[in-house]
Simulated assay, not measured.
Amino acid sequence: MSHPPHAVHVRAPGKINIALRVGSPRPDGYHPLATVFQAVSLYEDVVAEPAPDISVTVTGRHAAQVPTDRSNLAWRAAKLLADATGTDTGVRLHVTKGVPTAGGMGGGSADAAATLLACDLLWGTGLAREELGELAAELGADVPFALTGHTAVGVGRGDVLTPALARGRFAWVLALSDRGLSTPSVFRAWDALHPDPVPSPVLDPDLMSALVAADPRTLARHLVNDLQQAALELRPDLGDVLEVMAGTPALGTIVSGSGPTVAALASGPGDAARIAEAVTAAEVASEVLVVTGPVQGARLLEHVRGDDD
């Protein structure tokens, strides 16, 4: 006889926006986006255990900055899945953060994606990945990508995804900040910088060719983030990070998403280590990490069942 799992452990990745183009707000208030996401080897871990109601605890990188009440994206993901499937049991969620909080790398979105998958397995609700993806889109524009991972093109709010062919492995150096940036604040700053209408964005086809060619030097020429100037308006100190990276073997640099994480593309592991050493020595970041991408999306790590299972 099969017993319900005692705990489910799911891991989901953070992301870098290799390209992020932005248009003026639509009538619903959302900015149309055209973006290329790449999932990288920096992760959120969610362990889900049966409980009478929904609760969240958080440890790990920047954990003290993460709310654990009903505003938490993992809590909201569990509640959404329960409501959508008629599940009346709860879950105890423990999040171990590896992705910086409010860092422009989709850490909260990764929590939500991991929670959807973990609770689906814990509760035996049996939703297909496509159905989980539809729920993910209700939680935020980056959540569907955290489910799928790898490299993908996102349009609309960034939640309408098309897989992108990306050969090879890319090495990135991340300069983290211990102070996050509010995504709505960055978009408001973008609006202030663009008083005239900006048309719906499109992506450069040469960028897609660079991903297929697995050529970091070509890819570096196509790194673009329309939110970067807005992030710099709010956090001028990010200019110091970009300046230091410009004096290293970095092939290209970019603020990830709405920031403040800054990413440098390296030709390989050796140059990545040299870039990381230079940024660390300059003391312009609270933490410096070397990651690779693309990596897969939310996945089961452990499924603990009863002894007599």
Rank of each mutant, 00 (worst) to 15 (best):
residue 165 L to G: 08
residue 171 A to M: 13
residue 172 W to Y: 14
residue 172 W to L: 09
residue 175 A to E: 15
residue 178 D to C: 05
residue 180 G to S: 11
residue 181 L to E: 11
residue 181 L to I: 13
residue 183 T to A: 02
residue 184 P to I: 14
residue 184 P to F: 14
residue 186 V to P: 03
residue 187 F to P: 03
residue 188 R to T: 13
residue 191 D to T: 06
residue 191 D to S: 12
residue 192 A to V: 09
residue 192 A to G: 14
residue 194 H to M: 10
residue 195 P to R: 09
residue 197 P to D: 01
residue 198 V to F: 12
residue 200 S to G: 10
residue 200 S to E: 12
residue 201 P to D: 04
residue 203 L to W: 03
residue 204 D to K: 09
residue 207 L to G: 04
residue 207 L to C: 10
residue 208 M to T: 15
residue 208 M to C: 12
residue 209 S to T: 15
residue 211 L to R: 05
residue 212 V to E: 13
residue 213 A to V: 03
residue 213 A to S: 13
residue 213 A to K: 09
residue 215 D to A: 05
residue 215 D to C: 04
residue 215 D to N: 07
residue 215 D to R: 04
residue 216 P to G: 05
residue 216 P to R: 06
residue 217 R to F: 03
residue 220 A to R: 00
residue 224 V to D: 06
residue 225 N to C: 02
residue 227 L to M: 09
residue 227 L to P: 02
residue 228 Q to A: 01
residue 229 Q to I: 10
residue 231 A to I: 06
residue 231 A to D: 01
residue 232 L to G: 04
residue 232 L to C: 06
residue 233 E to H: 12
residue 233 E to M: 07
residue 236 P to D: 04
residue 239 G to E: 10
residue 240 D to A: 13
residue 241 V to C: 13
residue 241 V to W: 10
residue 245 M to I: 06
residue 246 A to K: 15
residue 249 P to R: 10
residue 255 V to R: 03
residue 255 V to E: 01
residue 256 S to A: 11
residue 256 S to T: 11
residue 258 S to V: 09
residue 258 S to R: 00
residue 259 G to Y: 07
residue 259 G to L: 06
residue 260 P to R: 04
residue 263 A to N: 08
residue 263 A to Y: 02
residue 268 G to A: 06
residue 268 G to V: 06
residue 270 G to H: 01
residue 270 G to D: 10
residue 271 D to Q: 01
residue 271 D to A: 02
residue 273 A to C: 07
residue 274 R to F: 07
residue 274 R to P: 00
residue 275 I to P: 01
residue 276 A to Q: 15
residue 277 E to L: 04
residue 278 A to G: 06
residue 279 V to R: 02
residue 282 A to Y: 11
residue 283 E to L: 00
residue 284 V to Y: 05
residue 285 A to G: 11
residue 289 L to M: 14
residue 291 V to T: 14
residue 292 T to E: 15
residue 292 T to A: 14
residue 293 G to R: 09
residue 293 G to S: 12
residue 293 G to M: 09
residue 294 P to T: 02
residue 294 P to C: 01
residue 294 P to I: 01
residue 296 Q to A: 08
residue 298 A to G: 01
residue 298 A to H: 03
residue 301 L to G: 02
residue 302 E to Y: 01
residue 303 H to L: 07
